[in-house]
Design a protein around this nucleic acid. Structure first.
Lengths: 345, 345
DNA sequence: TAAAAAAATGAAAACATTTGCATTTTTAGT
DNA sequence: ACTAAAAATGCAAATGTTTTCATTTTTTTA
């Protein structure tokens, strides 16, 4: 469909004409108002208003190469996991006078190259990613174009690219450690595939470390793999609970934990009397569940805001040496889904 | 911060030079490959690949005035309500080779003008909004620039602007009607403020219509107002349930319904034996709840996809006469949270 | 009040593409 | 093989800004 041109929006030159000044001055007025004289300023302001002029940020882009647009690539939007991050990131960007281009790949890393290509074609000024596991191609494409890239959500001291996030190993460790402290020795793990998910991988390792175990040492019915999907998790946990029940379940995140809660309810298993449940994330709604979910809070908002600030501040391009890495502290949130059985033991 | 220019990305002319053709031909190659000869095509393709060239969709924009970017303005991202819509909209846009600029105003219509301005500055080709209640200013700004605007989520046959969505009056009617059919006569309503929320308003009216009542006829403890927030809803409903319990609660959407479920659990009120609950929306997770939530499904994905198609297909500019209005059917989803008490009565 | 310095403005080139028109090359028809 | 028509390509103008450099205006200083 060969669309008609939509020209005719008044431009800087129309404004200039009407204000009786040169286009250059109008341009300056919008970029550095201070350097144009008060009187001229008013003239231009009035003219712009009369004409209903809006800056053309796009025409601007070919000039210096910056589009004022930042990309965000997430595994999924339709899920509580990243909702808070997305919202906060977007809002913060707006306050920097930038806009957000967002795309989801549905945990299919192969889609990332298409997305990155599309972003590159739009000349984004920077990109926030989730985690570290990405195909080589998109990362290389971005590097070749010198587009700052920031991995969010997870933190690793030796991350290959700049990052900001919680130390997911520690997060997992903290959760498991708390369970131990509460006297739990027989705990089951329900995690997503760690294949292309470094956050889950790190958490899992943290958990295992706290438990002083290898994954391979876990009994069959003490480790379950399920995607971040309430329904799938619920099914898996119904199975898990159906015989030889552990005293506690540690979930890869709160979505899985929610599935766990539903599973218990469906089976008539009481939380925390019959089984304790701990999540990771502290998503919207986790605190209101019955019983309130004990979990480790991922500080999504702080991560998102700092990420936005970083990206807008012209994060220096990835370099082996001076890579920016910021660790945001997570926090154990004790509610009621974990029972203290340390004394009775 | 006066950022350094980021030029130097190879452009169409570098590609042309390397391929030994003119820039015009390269341009044509990327826009209408068929009209360039096979041999030349290969040359260009190779040159582009060698140079790592990406199209510059932005430079393109000043030419015909279309940026290939569509705006989406939602009340909130961090909430299950629009998650499915956002995801589907974004994905569909990608398949049209467009990108999505998204912003949330947090149910504060005043913020819309800033957002619209920002979008206009980026020369978006179209905008999808939620519902009909918007400040006059942003709508006028869009109209002045002839940017197609599409109201999604709600449908009204006399909508002031093109729309696509479910008929929320009918949705509400359907929910209430089902309750009546199941024998419920004493039902309580929990809805968000209908002030700037036409979806909620229409639903509420539909419910009242089915109940053959006026809002004013409802007893104090049969109508509660709460935002779309699980915690707030939970509190309200705890209050609602604390004395003179109705036989059923009809919730403005599934988020409120989830709060209702938590409220019941916290009070030890059984669903559906002690009280029935019906929601609206059928959000992610509603089907897995215990008991599964009976609700009216809002076909978010279909709405989103058609909206994207419409906007990409160059939806005609709003005109009093020929305004496009598309109604997408909703569907009652019967699960287990509503009890049939018609026979015992 | 004149000269020097500083501030404000203007003119025109530049950015990376598209596109109307002109020109060249290819194909088809005899 | 020659011509006419069609297809492919090239040239150059145009798009809406920003930016460098030059010029004009204003302010400061003596």
């Amino acid at each position: 469909m060969r669309a008609r041109s939509r020209k005719g929006a008044p431009g800087i030159v129309e404004v200039a004409k009407r204000a009786g000044v040169s286009p250059a001055t109008v341009s300056r007025f919008f970029n550095e108002p201070e350097i144009v004289k008060g009187k001229t300023r008013n003239l231009i302001e009035q003219a712009a208003k009369d004409l209903g002029y809006y800056r053309n940020r796009i025409a601007t882009t070919d000039q210096h190469g910056f589009s004022g647009t930042i990309g965000l690539i997430v595994p999924t939007i339709d899920n509580a996991i990243f909702a808070e991050l997305i919202q906060a990131f977007s809002a913060r960007l707006l306050s920097h006078d930038r806009t957000m281009l967002i795309a989801a790949h549905g945990y299919n890393p192969a889609l990332e190259v298409g997305i990155v290509k599309s972003l590159l074609e739009r000349r984004i000024d920077g990109v926030a990613l989730i985690g570290f596991e990405h195909e080589k191609a998109p990362l290389e494409m971005l590097a070749a174009r010198r587009v700052p890239v920031l991995a969010t959500w997870n933190y690793r001291k030796d991350s290959p690219i700049p990052c900001i996030g919680a130390d997911n190993f520690q997060v997992g460790y903290e959760a498991a450690q708390y369970l131990r402290k509460m006297g739990h020795r027989d705990v089951a793990l329900v995690f997503p595939p760690t294949k292309a998910n470094d956050r889950a991988e790190d958490r899992l390792n943290g958990v295992l470390h706290a438990l002083s175990m290898e994954l391979s040492e876990l009994q069959n019915n003490r480790f379950f793999e399920t995607r971040y999907d309430i329904g799938e998790a619920k099914q898996a946990i119904i199975e898990l609970l159906s015989d030889d029940r552990p005293t506690a379940i540690i979930c890869g995140n709160d979505v899985i934990a929610q599935g766990a809660v539903y599973a218990c309810q469906s089976l008539g298993v009481r939380i925390p009397d019959d089984v304790s449940i701990i999540g990771i994330g502290d998503f919207r709604g986790s605190s209101q569940m019955e019983p309130g979910l004990t979990t480790v809070r991922m500080p999504a908002q702080r991560i998102a805001e700092q990420a936005a600030d970083l990206l807008c501040g012209g994060l220096s391009v990835t370099s082996v040496k001076g890579t920016t890495r910021i660790k945001i502290d997570s926090e154990l949130v004790v509610r009621r889904s974990v029972k203290d059985i340390s004394s009775v033991n």
